[in-house]
């Protein structure tokens, strides 16, 4: 009995730690979302929430339905692997209601240099220019056909 009295304070200390651990476990069970970890280290329900959000992109199939001429032109050019909405922006609303929602054409002065401004880190074969020296401020599509750039793309190169 005497020995127990002499370790009573240690038992109290262990009790404090136990309380801390219980608090931690309760706090954890209250704060962690129920679906956490269902598919991986994230909230599983987030997938359902994200998929229920309205669509912004129509997808290139929708574009090609109404614009087969552009699709044909693009299919043979160097931009064939690019999606329409990569340059034109998300156009789900336009695809749903083509009559009333008219897309705004992209500003080529900003758009083309996103990929084609000169940078030593880019592969040497990739077309890249110093826009100021190259065009002197002229819009890129004055000379280039954006849907199929290159030397053989009818009129414009």
């Amino acid at each position: 009995m005497g020995e127990f009295k002499d370790i009573a304070h240690l038992i109290r200390l262990a009790g404090v730690f136990l309380l801390g651990l219980i608090f931690f476990l309760v706090f954890r069970s209250v704060t962690i979302p129920k679906s956490f970890g269902r598919y991986g280290p994230f909230r599983g329900a987030a997938l359902v929430e994200l998929s229920s959000r309205p669509l912004s992109f129509a997808g290139h199939a929708a574009c090609e339905n109404c614009h087969p001429d552009v699709a044909a032109l693009k299919a043979n050019g160097v931009h064939k692997s690019l999606n329409c909405e990569s340059c034109h922006g998300p156009l789900a609303k336009h695809a749903d209601d083509p009559g009333n929602v008219k897309p705004v054409l992209p500003d080529v002065a900003q758009l083309c240099i996103r990929c084609h401004s000169e940078n030593i880190a880019k592969p040497a074969g990739f077309p890249q220019v110093n826009a100021k020296e190259h065009s002197g401020g002229q819009a890129c599509n004055t000379c280039h056909q954006p849907h199929s750039p290159g030397f053989d793309a009818g009129g414009k190169k």
Binding site: G2, E3, K5, D6, A8, H9, R12, L13, V16
Partner: peptide, 9 residues
């Protein structure tokens, strides 16, 4: 922690 036991043991 409510324990005042500071006996030598």
């Amino acid at each position: 922690l409510g324990s005042y036991n500071i006996s030598p043991a």
